[in-house]
Amino acid sequence: MSGRVVVVTGAGRGLGRAHALAFAARGARVVVNDIGTGLDGSGRSTGPAADVVAEIEAAGGQAVANGDDVADWAGARNLVDTAVREFGGLDVLVNNAGFLRDRMLVNLSEQEWDDVVRVHLKGHFAPLRHAAAYWRAEHKAGRPRAARVINTSSGAGLLGSVGQGNYSAAKAGIAGLTVVAAAELARYGVTVNAIAPAARTRMTEATFAETMSAPGAGFDAMAPENVSPLVVWLGGEESAGVTGRVFEVDGGRVSLARGWRHGPVRDKGARWEPEELGPVVAELLAEAPDPEPVYGT
């Protein structure tokens, strides 16, 4: 990663902090983005991002803090501009920022839906859009970069999660955005992948309150630092042949998720009548694997 310029959103704590430190430890120059809000969304502080920058600099690395709201169009553009202005370019974008507003659907408010979709889904799209414009311009100017995007989906986005309809929908949208961006940006030498991590952070500390045991003395399977090595590898030049993929990662486990695929089919060659379809659907279901269970069921 020596010399590469990396932006990590939501990098003041948790997974983002672990990613920023891991990239810096490998020689990357890092833009540490975080708006420093509380779990309830209140307040803003430069403290968390500044603290991570201080950690990186104390270890001999290079980093700058950025407090822009990644779901704000101008803020996302300024985040990309910060990397270019401070370090002369941008090579890796790690979209990580997010928060939770968990409710069962019958209790979920419009504001709680809008807030989660905005921060997660628009907060991925806006930085990606401005980074992609920069990389396209660089490519057209004869300065192509081995650029990488690592998005953050979730098991909730891949399989669903009871009580997290807003979060599951946003994270599923991120997985869909990832495969489209990978197809569209390949012409510029940009790869786009996503991770679905499980780790103990402010968002998940209630879920992962107890340290999970795993092989190896003293190994904390839910430490956020376990996720970062894959993110760093995906951000390097060696990962050039990998794009449009979603990896699940937690503890010492890495797996490749398989998304929606074409399955069994029946083709009548004409329009079906409703009364004909019961047996057809039964045959299709019998030939297809059962779906993975939704988390929480």
Rank of each mutant, 00 (worst) to 15 (best):
residue 226 N to S: 01
residue 247 F to H: 09
residue 209 A to V: 10
residue 236 G to R: 03
residue 11 A to H: 00
residue 43 G to N: 12
residue 279 P to I: 02
residue 285 L to G: 07
residue 265 V to L: 12
residue 82 T to R: 13
residue 270 A to L: 02
residue 116 V to N: 05
residue 27 G to S: 00
residue 130 H to M: 04
residue 227 V to M: 03
residue 288 A to V: 06
residue 238 E to F: 04
residue 251 G to A: 11
residue 164 Q to H: 07
residue 180 V to P: 08
residue 267 D to A: 03
residue 245 R to L: 09
residue 184 E to V: 01
residue 233 W to Y: 14
residue 294 V to T: 15
residue 278 G to A: 06
residue 161 S to Q: 15
residue 68 D to S: 07
residue 271 R to C: 00
residue 122 K to L: 13
residue 21 L to N: 06
residue 77 R to D: 06
residue 266 R to E: 15
residue 48 P to W: 01
residue 143 R to Y: 06
residue 100 L to M: 11
residue 28 A to Q: 08
residue 10 G to W: 12
residue 110 E to R: 09
residue 256 L to G: 07
residue 71 A to Q: 08
residue 103 R to A: 14
residue 241 G to N: 12
residue 50 A to I: 06
residue 172 A to F: 05
residue 122 K to C: 02
residue 114 D to P: 01
residue 86 E to L: 02
residue 41 G to N: 01
residue 166 N to P: 11
residue 277 L to H: 10
residue 56 I to Q: 06
residue 271 R to A: 10
residue 96 N to G: 10
residue 229 P to C: 01
residue 173 G to H: 08
residue 99 F to R: 14
residue 54 A to E: 15
residue 84 V to L: 04
residue 199 A to H: 11
residue 274 P to S: 00
residue 51 D to E: 15
residue 129 R to A: 07
residue 178 T to G: 09
residue 150 I to S: 03
residue 268 K to I: 00
residue 209 A to S: 15
